[in-house]
Simulated assay, not measured.
Amino acid sequence: MTERDLRVVLAEDSVILRDGMVELLTARGCRVVATAGTPDELLAAVEHHRPDVAVVDVRMPPTHTDEGIRAAVTIRATAPRVGVLVFSQHVETAWASRLLAAGATGVGYLLKERVARTSEFMDAMRRVAAGGTALDPEVVDRLVHGGRAGRVDTLTAREREVLELMAQGHSNRSVAARLVVSERAVEKHVAAVFTKFDLPASNEDNRRVKAVLAYLSETGG
């Protein structure tokens, strides 16, 4: 799926930022079918338009705490085919865990600074709209290094690197390119992760999702 195929609902209460994001998305060929400034407006827009992806600010009116993430969780439950990409000013591992509780497909969590990096933002939108995962590297790093002991601690340093990149939504080929190793080497590390997480042979994508969820459940607080 390319940007030009994407139908987007955008939820951001700051008019300046919202207008800027609409301009950015439109310039890249996306069709912003609706914008929203409140959680209720967001939920109504998703229900009406059923977009490919909803881009949602974590903090929204009236309290500017977790209204956006709660609306995102609702979308995940009521419209599972709609990708959800949330963005926040800060790393909030508890919010990331709540968002991923229903599964690690069609979901993303980015820091707002990443939104300004157009290529990264658009890549994350494409992955989420296609049913993939896009977690900000800083979110993943906080989850990895701030969690409690568990199966993650049985991984080697390289296996953990591979799993971190899997959690960010990278394919084996992309992981290999980033770590400058062969794709076969990555496959071996992924297989080791599956073994240590006690994930028997089944659908490859399903096992990747389960591995990411196990990783987040043990490192996310």
Rank of each mutant, 00 (worst) to 15 (best):
E120P: 01
L110D: 06
A79Y: 11
P80R: 06
H90Q: 13
V86Y: 02
G108D: 04
A71T: 00
V58N: 05
I69L: 12
E113K: 12
V73K: 12
P39H: 03
P51E: 04
G106K: 03
R117N: 10
L43M: 12
D52M: 09
L99H: 08
G108A: 10
V115R: 02
L85P: 08
I75K: 03
Q89A: 15
T93F: 04
V91E: 03
A36F: 07
V107F: 06
R98P: 04
D123W: 07
V58K: 00
G108T: 01
F121Q: 04
V55S: 04
S97E: 12
V73Y: 08
A45D: 05
T65A: 14
G83R: 09
P80A: 04
A45M: 11
T65H: 08
F87D: 08
V82F: 02
G106D: 05
R59G: 07
D52G: 15
A54P: 07
V73L: 11
L42K: 03
D66V: 12
R81Q: 14
A104R: 02
E120S: 11
A72G: 07
R50W: 01
T74G: 02
I75C: 00
S88F: 07
A102W: 00
G83Y: 02
L85T: 01
D66G: 11
L110I: 01
A116V: 12
R70M: 13
E113F: 02
G68A: 08
R114H: 07
E92C: 09
R59K: 14
H48R: 15
H49Q: 13
H64R: 14
L100R: 05
V55E: 01
T105N: 11
A102Y: 01
T78D: 11
L110E: 04
E113T: 13
L100Q: 01
E120Q: 14
G83L: 10
G68Y: 00
